[in-house]
Amino acid sequence: MLKFLKPALIALGLFAVIATPVVAGKLGIGREATPAEIKGWDIDVRPDGQGLPEGKGTVETGEELFQEKCAACHGEFAEGVDRWPVLAGGQDTLDSDRPVKTVGSYWPYLSTAYDYIFRAMPFGDAQSLSPDEVYALLAYILNMNDLVDDDFELSKSNFLTVRLPNEKNFIDDPRPDTPILAQKKPCMENCKTTVEITGRARIVDVTPDGEKGSN
């Protein structure tokens, strides 16, 4: 009897371990979100313009606002301060040894900058800018990247006409891009005749404060 039961119990046990709950259809949990709630939280902007609010702003107003709200970290000319992000320049550096990735040199879509600035900037005072302010800041950043003239005004209506130069240089993920098992079996014995140390970790101060001594 026991002999008969044991495999059955094991089978049941395994079933219990791997089974995922089966849900057929809606469970009636939650409630409908109201239009007002969605309006308050639906802040994203896409490359096709979906999500862009009405508004406009010039390079000139953007410059003033940038000095007030952004320059402390990003520099007067969007050149970046200390380790804070550089927003302008860097054109023709991407294939160099020290690439500089900015809105002008690297970012593929202007909508990304709109989306990001409103949701996350100024750092520590997010979602505080008006649409006109975001358009103006973008106009100034484009101008600092030599992508628009000094008298340019960015608005919802001309937004999609602005294309960033690096858009075409993004490609889909081609991995795996190193030999897999089917192509090359890893060597196990006598794989090399000599081995030399070619580099050592630089002595850098990775020890945080409080680690030296008694905590």
Partner: peptide
């Protein structure tokens, strides 16, 4: 095409293209 999937978390190759 959020900031964290364009300006960050994209992989810049030697020829200047990015994954």
């Amino acid at each position: 095409q959020a900031r964290e999937e364009t300006s960050k978390y994209t992989d810049l190759m030697e020829d200047g293209t990015s994954r």
